Amino acid sequence: MASGLIALFDDIAVIARSAAASLDDIAAATATAGTKAAGVVIDDAAVTPRYVAGLSPDRELPIIAKIAVGSLRNKLLVLLPLSLLLSAFLPFAITPLLMLGGAYLAYEATEKLVELALHDHHDEVELAKCDTPEELEARQVAGAIRTDLILSAEIMAIALASLAGRTIVSQAIILAAVGIGITIAVYGAVALVVKLDDIGLHLARRGTPFARRFGLALVRLVPWLLTGLSSIGTAAMLWVGGGILVHGMDELGFDAIPHAIHDLAAKLAGDHIASGPLEWLVNALAAALVALVIGGLLVLALHLARDSRQSGNPAPQPPAS
């Protein structure tokens, strides 16, 4: 009887160790998958603050909460099931779909640069058409959730690509953990950023002399921070989109450009003491250049198509009086 009890305890200990190892494995895989998606996460965090620009300060956090809930719905109710279906039945489609997402990121970033160069304020004109603050808020939230769907799809696809060979249950757990963790991190950071000026005003009005100076510095810093985040977001879109495209070319056998980039990075880095960071920088810049080229072609094609539609359908003329 005693030996049987000891054997039972041994079995329980083995199961417990196995479960702990499995949890550790899932945690490590979740961290790895999340790290691979870091570039898109940076862009997601950088893009979101613009959706509360111009709105009442007391609506900023509720709006971010609505966007965060929409983001979770995107990841857990739409993208997670689709990712698992892809993994189970169409694993060969993951790389082409990733490349489509990479091309979209390249297009978005390039169009932002074109609009900046041409001083195009199309988005502001569209938002000015809203009749009420509620309509403006609803449009901003809907636009943010649509953008989040694309970025979340990239995050989930990048994470899924790192989980090849795992069971469907393991993939589901890891993807859910990545989706929830990234959403909390992104929108928590966004909430902090958009309220920094309010924090600064509070310190400037009620704090000690040092706190007042710090608060005023925060208030002055926020516009620069938001501008910097927008620039970082555009750069991240180019870097990540280009990296996805280059990696996809390599995966699909179109390896001339990926190999040329790799060889150039290795040659420029050489045996320098900072060869690792330097090689990464060259790869990132080359990927961004690839994204600019592909994004530029897409922007040109879409603008030509839009101009063609407009010339083929001239605006109706008012009747003669």
Rank of each mutant, 00 (worst) to 15 (best):
A103S: 14
I180C: 09
E126K: 07
T132S: 15
P96W: 02
G200F: 05
S170Y: 02
T95H: 00
G207R: 13
D197Q: 14
A138H: 13
E115V: 06
A109K: 00
L196Y: 03
M156K: 05
T183D: 13
L113Q: 12
R205G: 11
I173E: 05
L149V: 07
D131I: 01
L116Q: 12
H202I: 03
L97F: 13
L149Q: 02
I168K: 03
A191E: 09
I94N: 04
A191K: 03
I94K: 01
G179P: 03
A177V: 09
A191W: 06
M99H: 06
T167R: 10
E126I: 08
E135A: 05
E134M: 03
F214W: 12
L149Y: 14
L98G: 15
T183C: 15
G188A: 07
A144W: 06
R166I: 13
L86C: 06
E111C: 02
L113R: 04
Y187E: 04
V114D: 03
A93P: 02
F89W: 14
A161H: 07
E115H: 14
A161E: 05
A106F: 07
F92I: 05
L85C: 12
V125A: 15
E134F: 00
A157K: 00
A176H: 12
V193W: 01
K112T: 11
Y187F: 14
A103F: 09
A109C: 10
C130P: 02
L105N: 01
L116C: 02
Q140N: 13
E126L: 11
Y107I: 06
I150C: 02
